[in-house]
Design a protein around this nucleic acid. Sequence first.
DNA 1: AGTATGACGTTTT
DNA 2: AAAAACGCCATAC
Length: 117
Amino acid sequence: MEFERRAKEVIRSIPRGKVATYAQVATLAGNYKGARQVARVLHSSLDKDRLPWQRVINSRGGISLKRGHGFEEQKRLLIREGVRVDRLGRIELDSFQWEAGGMRRSAAKEFLRKLTQ
DNA sequence: AGTATGACGTTTT
DNA sequence: AAAAACGCCATAC
């Protein structure tokens, strides 16, 4: 699907040392209700190694993967690139969230234009 | 076609 | 702060 391709492009655009929420990725990819689809893309994506998947977290500022199923690796990867993650996997969005248009729906159009120019 | 399933999100307890 | 209760929607079956 088209949304899936755009979602991957958005994820590849998240800078090192920053994070974005599932909903933020969905919004920038043009489907503000697509958070669960972003999660699905990440869960079932075969080219995971080409994606900075660790930079996508939930809206509460936390790692959504469960302990023993990726939590530890995501935390390690984030810390390695300078993101502060506490014991429970929580991150201060005020400090580490990627700004790119924030959650504004109007930001999506502009972002997509730059993405495909 | 109908139903269950989520790396989710917002609002309400 | 945490959890339930909803809402949501593409996929899989």
